[in-house]
Structures are given as structure tokens and as C-alpha cells.
Write a protein that binds this DNA or RNA. Structure first.
Lengths: 233, 233
DNA sequence: CGGCCGCTTGAACGTTTTCAAACTCCGTGG
DNA sequence: CCACGGAGTTTGAAAACGTTCAAGCGGCCG
């Protein structure tokens, strides 16, 4: 949890990337700006731990956060990623439960923290904001349901191909068609829900199939159509 | 979709089992009661289909509904059950998406239908109601996340044991310790996310282990502790 | 330079699925 | 009343899939 002595600029703390806040009144925005605490975080830093009480939620302005549950003998199951424009931790605040996941920085990040009471006040008093959050929650619930079906019915091979496509959709590719997110093989395995070795073997099969090119953690996407077909979508 | 010529009594259409509605004003309650359409449904009836547009949501006053997604070559993945006091279909209405699941009656039921606009109006105008729904959604999201982890990390054996416990918690046991819900082997398989034959074999192992006693679809729970241990919870 | 962490590969093992066949229960129609 | 058919259930055997264990490699940091 060691933080750099680095104070994010006002620019980096703005909510311009957060459509969620567009329906706030000027006064509400003032309160939010007064209460927010922005910070810089390093790869590896943990925002909150599964099981602990939440004191607020986070808005991601920069960087990437992985959100995971800890299962059998400590094995991570990655549930989601959050990046610029996403918020995290709000679920537990609203359902008034302890955190059901752990959130950890995987790419150096700038985050704004907002305390629980602020979220609850906004939800209770601003119906447009509340509706926005509700929509978000319902979308996430729909995605979770799809994920359950996939993981229950598809082979590891299909799921890995699908995850590569999802990562591409979420994080995009650079000029060289390389995935804009750097994950260890173990992290990939923890998304797919399989063993690290299986991911390694399958990635290397995908390489033989000319779907991807591998260079350490850099994954170059060569054939989206091939991956889509393999993913059985 | 054939319905019995049976009109539910006022008693059966009341919302006494729905804590969700306790925060409505008298006027709001009047509107709800005016707009609601209550009906009797038979086992096998389908309430709504995955992919179709939702026109409202349902409140379960009696009976049991299974909610599933259709995956690879038509295989069902059961996501949830709804019984007395539960509501269903609200998620798609609120996120303004098409239904992402199919809902089918598995135990003769009495349901009240409420149109979309009513739900949206209530959510927008009654912050207590809205907060209640939000909590519900967030809870469901938390459960979905747990389910993802389980299905990704546990063996079929562990999951089946866990599902038996969940079914016991949700539907209870009768005087004879028999699960108060009757499911086909295939339906059990579609909850666990496995093949029908695997469920049959594992149930029979559980019988040998004296965890359960089997009599057709009746499952008598003998040893919850044993099941819990097997489920690795 | 040593050690650690992450990556890779091979081989054996165990679990789960698939396919095939037979059996049971139940309701229907002859 | 019984035969028939169908759906659901059960069992066995073989095959596919994925995990686990063991070992070696490679790069990076201190």
C-alpha cells in the first residue's frame, strides 16, 4: 500500500470521463468535489479487501483495476476490470454488505474516493442519478448472468478465445494490434477460470492457428474472426 | 401457454408477501392495484423469452418459476428461481434491454403482472422504493459473482452438494426432511452446469455416503453437515 | 552473480462427458 | 384392461478434456 509522493492534477481528478455524474446539480457537484479524495496508486496496491466494510466507492480516472474473489485455497477469480470512466465498490455500499470482492491496481492509477454517505444521499435525492446507477447495476447483472452460462457450458478453449475478444473490446489495440492491457498468464487463467498451464498451452495453440502472436505479455491479435469462431459466440 | 379458466382470488393477488411494496403511498398502491393483472399459470408455461422485449415485470404470489439462459446447442443454464415474494423481469425493464433470460413456471403459480412504465415511474418518483430495488439488484449481483467463482473453481461434486444446500435454504424441507421443490435430473444438471448423467451418478454416490435418500424426484436430506463438507464451503 | 518469479513443456492422472442401451413410470387410446 | 409410446432415469464403457506434478528455462532485480 506504499504510495508515491505524487499528487494528481486537477485535470486528472475531474469527472469528465464519468457520465454517471452528468445529472448532478451544481450544488451537488460542489459537494462531490469538496468530499472527493483523489490519489495516485501503484501496481499491486489494494483498494479494498473482500469481507471488509466499505467506507465509500472509487472512480477510475486513469489506470486499470482488477476486481476478484478469492476461492478455493486462495485461487483468485477475476470478476471484472475497471478503467477510466468506471466506478467500483458502489455495489457493496448500496446493498449495505461487506465487500464481496477485492480490488487491486494492475496498472498505475489515479482514483477518486467518495464516501458512502455521499453515494446514498445522491441515490436518495437525485432520481436521475439513481436511475443511472440502477441501469448500470442491471447491466452488470445481465453480464454476470451471461458469464455464468459461458463458464458453465463452454470449454476452456472457447472461453479463452472469448476473453481475448472481450479484452480487445474493453481495452482496445495499439497501432501494432497489440492488446492494450498487460496480464500475467496466471491472471488470464483467473479470468477464464482454469489452470495457468492450460492458458499457456492454449495460447500457444492459438499462435499455431495464427490467431495471435506472442511476445511475453504482449498479445498481438491477428485473426479476430478465427477467435470469434473458436469462442463459439 | 394454455391457461386454466381460473381466476385468482383477491387474497392470492395481494402484495402481502412483497416487502418491496411496503414503502408505497396510498395513492401509489391504488395505481398499482388498478394496473396489476393477476393470473394463474401451469407448469411449463413461459412468462417471457430470452431476447424478447419486456413489457413489464412479475410478482410471484404462489408457485415456482425457473429463470434460465439458453447456451450452446440449446442447453439451459438455470440462473435463479423465483417463488412467493420474489419479483422477476424487472432487471431488463430497468436497464432498457431485451430479456436476457427465459422465465418458465415449474410449479403451478399465481403471478401479478405490472407494466414497465409503472415500475419506471415508481423508481423515479419514490426514492424509498427505488432504494429498495437498488438493494435487491446489488444483492443479486453479489450472488452472481459468488456463483461465477464457484462454477469456475469447484468440481461438479462440490457444486451439486452446494446446490442441494442452497435449494434447502431457499425452499425448505417438509416434515419428512424432503426438499420442498421437485426438479428433474436434467434441471438439477442445468443449475450445476453439468451433464444429466453426472448428476445421476453423483446423487447416487451421495446416497451411498448417506447424505441423501432418493425416491424419484423426492430428495430427502439426511446429513447436511456431510453435504456442507463435500461442498467445500 | 544468485535467487526469485513467471513462463514453458512433458507426462501421468483424474474427472467429466459422450454415446449407447435398457429400464421405469405414467398417461392415452384401442 | 392392457398395450403402446414417450419422457425421464439409470448404468456401463470409452473417450475427451483439463489438472496436477515435476522439471527446466529465462529474465530481472537486488
Amino acid at each position: 500500500m506504499k504510495r508515491k509522493k505524487y499528487i494528481p492534477s486537477d485535470e486528472e481528478c475531474s469527472f469528465q470521463f464519468h457520465p454517471i455524474f452528468t445529472h448532478l446539480s451544481e450544488e451537488e457537484m460542489e459537494v462531490v468535489n469538496f468530499e472527493k479524495e483523489c490519489d495516485f496508486f501503484n501496481r499491486g496496491d489494494i483498494l479494498y479487501h473482500e469481507g471488509r466494510k466499505m467506507t465509500g466507492f472509487y472512480c477510475v480516472n486513469k489506470g486499470v483495476v482488477k476486481i476478484y474473489k478469492t476461492g478455493i485455497d486462495g485461487k483468485e477469480q477475476i470478476i471484472a476490470f475497471a478503467q477510466q470512466g468506471n466506478i467500483l465498490g458502489y455495489r457493496s455500499v448500496l446493498s449495505d454488505e461487506n465487500a464481496c470482492t477485492t480490488a487491486q491496481i494492475i496498472e498505475d492509477a489515479v482514483l477518486c474516493f467518495l464516501p458512502s454517505h455521499l453515494l446514498i444521499d445522491l441515490v436518495k435525492n437525485n432520481s436521475a442519478f439513481s436511475f443511472q446507477i440502477m441501469k448500470l447495476t442491471c447491466q452488470e447483472l445481465g453480464e454476470a448472468n451471461s458469464y455464468i452460462t459461458d463458464i458453465a457450458q463452454k470449454t476452456v478453449r472457447e472461453r479463452l478465445a472469448e476473453i481475448l475478444i472481450l479484452l480487445k473490446d474493453k481495452f482496445g489495440l495499439d497501432n501494432d494490434n497489440i492488446l492494450n492491457i498487460s496480464l500475467t498468464r496466471e491472471e488470464l487463467a483467473n479470468i477464464v477460470g482454469t489452470a495457468t498451464e492450460s492458458v499457456i498451452r492454449l495460447l500457444s495453440e492459438f499462435k499455431d492457428d495464427k490467431f495471435v502472436e506472442l511476445n511475453g505479455r504482449k498479445i498481438k491479435i491477428l485473426d479476430i474472426q478465427g477467435l470469434t469462431k473458436t469462442a463459439n459466440i
